[in-house]
Amino acid sequence: MTDRREVQFTFDCADPGALAEFWAQVLGYRVQDPPAGFSTWEEALEAWNVPRERWNDASAVVDPGGVGPRLFFQRVPEGKQVKNRLHPDVRAAPGLAGDARMAALEAEAERLGALGATRLARYEPAPPFAAGHIVMADPEGNEFCLD
């Protein structure tokens, strides 16, 4: 028996398919393959007699290298109400400091903005503890940081 546990992060959202595609682009992940025996998710859902209006109830993305956690997206009826208590930090400038770090974060913020993210705030470096970061929101308003 091992003490190691895997972790999955779940996002409540209105459009699981679109949000999964967004996060796949952010992280270099891919949408999870359909189950064995099916060439597409549509084929699987049809075979399982899932009504078409439920086909976008859930989606997931996975790290192609098998290292990072799976992200699961599930449709919920209510919209986002308040600030996230837990949020992802996208490590967009590892090993960089000062102006080089902030320039790398700005470039990533611009790329993600083109994918539908919204820039919320920029925090300047404040040594010794804060290296500087940019707060963003995904297309459904879930906050995350470019770190």
Score class of each variant (00 low, 15 high):
89 D>W: 00
82 V>R: 13
103 A>C: 04
80 K>F: 01
75 R>Q: 08
103 A>V: 02
89 D>A: 14
107 A>G: 12
104 A>V: 09
87 H>N: 06
70 R>Y: 09
81 Q>E: 15
82 V>A: 14
99 D>H: 08
86 L>Q: 02
96 L>K: 01
89 D>R: 02
71 L>N: 05
90 V>S: 03
79 G>H: 10
94 P>A: 14
84 N>W: 04
97 A>W: 07
84 N>M: 04
79 G>Q: 15
86 L>W: 10
104 A>D: 03
71 L>E: 08
85 R>F: 05
76 V>W: 03
75 R>H: 14
103 A>L: 05
81 Q>S: 14
72 F>V: 15
76 V>C: 10
68 G>W: 02
91 R>Q: 07
106 E>I: 03
104 A>I: 04
106 E>K: 02
66 G>V: 03
107 A>E: 15
75 R>E: 11
106 E>H: 08
66 G>P: 08
89 D>G: 07
93 A>V: 06
89 D>L: 09
90 V>I: 15
65 G>Q: 06
72 F>R: 12
74 Q>N: 10
89 D>E: 15
77 P>A: 15
72 F>D: 09
97 A>Q: 08
69 P>H: 02
85 R>L: 09
80 K>R: 07
73 F>E: 10
65 G>W: 00
81 Q>M: 11
90 V>Q: 02
108 E>F: 04
105 L>W: 01
77 P>F: 03
94 P>L: 10
90 V>M: 03
82 V>C: 07
83 K>C: 01
103 A>M: 01
107 A>L: 07
80 K>T: 00
104 A>K: 14
100 A>N: 07
91 R>W: 01
77 P>K: 12
98 G>Y: 02
71 L>Y: 10
78 E>L: 14
71 L>V: 01
81 Q>P: 05
80 K>L: 06
96 L>G: 05
107 A>D: 13
67 V>H: 04
